[in-house]
């Protein structure tokens, strides 16, 4: 018995891989799903998420979320850190591509009626994922702390703040006060790198589990 077989057997004895793997590996995807490129959009969005997580962790090594240091640290990433400018650009473009892929995925699901019985709740989770993805974009927009970041956030939080009843609370939670300050930055940073990643991982898990249990709506 060679080494790979021995390793496989070691794990198989303990975790019964030979029983667990075939249903995953041989699980059939409907013929139309495999041949129609419209079904790639959800997977593309997930790939974007993985790239964003990787490039985001890289950026978090160098980024400093304070009004004094944020802009300088982004400049440092772009000019001094090896490949820094490329990684930041990848993070930027992948974020935009992810929103585009998620939007097109939703349009595909809507026009194919794939949200119908029994997949109603998966549509609901999908809308929540769309909300999380766009909130990622909103919270990330402030972090470079340049003119556009500051003023777009000022207007954005102003709009969210004028929603009836909830608005003032949303505004207070986001800003940590009445204006964009150092408190706002740390909050946006915590939302961007702690709260939203946790939320998206849970929601993606539920989203994929439901697809796995219910299968892909195979109509075309």
């Amino acid at each position: 018995m060679n080494l790979p077989d021995m390793i496989y057997k070691w794990f198989d004895d303990r975790f019964k891989i030979s029983e667990l793997l075939p249903p995953i590996v041989k699980h059939p995807a409907p013929e139309k799903v495999t041949s129609n490129p419209l079904y790639c959009l959800g997977g593309t969005a997930f790939l974007c998420f993985l790239i964003l997580a990787g490039s985001g962790i890289f950026l978090a090594f160098y980024y400093k979320p304070t009004p004094e240091e944020a802009y300088k640290s982004v400049e440092h990433i772009m000019t001094a850190v090896p490949m820094g400018s490329l990684i930041r650009s990848i993070h930027h473009w992948t974020a935009n591509l992810m929103i585009a892929a998620v939007s097109l995925h939703m349009i595909r699901v809507y026009f194919m009626g794939a949200y119908k019985n029994p997949r109603e709740l998966n549509w609901v989770v999908g809308v929540l994922l769309f909300l999380v993805a766009t909130t990622f974009g909103f919270s990330g927009y402030l972090l470079p702390w340049d003119q556009l970041a500051f003023w777009a956030t000022k207007i954005g939080t102003g709009i969210a703040g004028s929603i009836p009843v909830m608005g003032p609370y949303i505004s207070l939670i986001l800003l940590g006060g009445t204006d964009i300050t150092a408190d706002t930055m740390t909050r946006f940073y915590a939302i961007h790198v702690l709260i939203l990643p946790a939320a998206i991982i849970v929601l993606l898990g539920v989203h994929f589990m439901m697809v796995r249990i219910q299968g892909i709506s195979g109509r075309l």
């Binding site: 400049e75 930041r88 650009s89 909103f138 702390w145 340049d146 003119q147 556009l148 003023w151 954005g156």
Partner: peptide, 28 residues
Amino acid sequence: LSSLFPAGLLKPADPFDTPSPIFPEWYY
């Protein structure tokens, strides 16, 4: 896209100087 059109960085934020135009992300 990242190589041809790198992510930009404008002037540092200045709470006393409102730029024009201000655009949010395209999906907003």
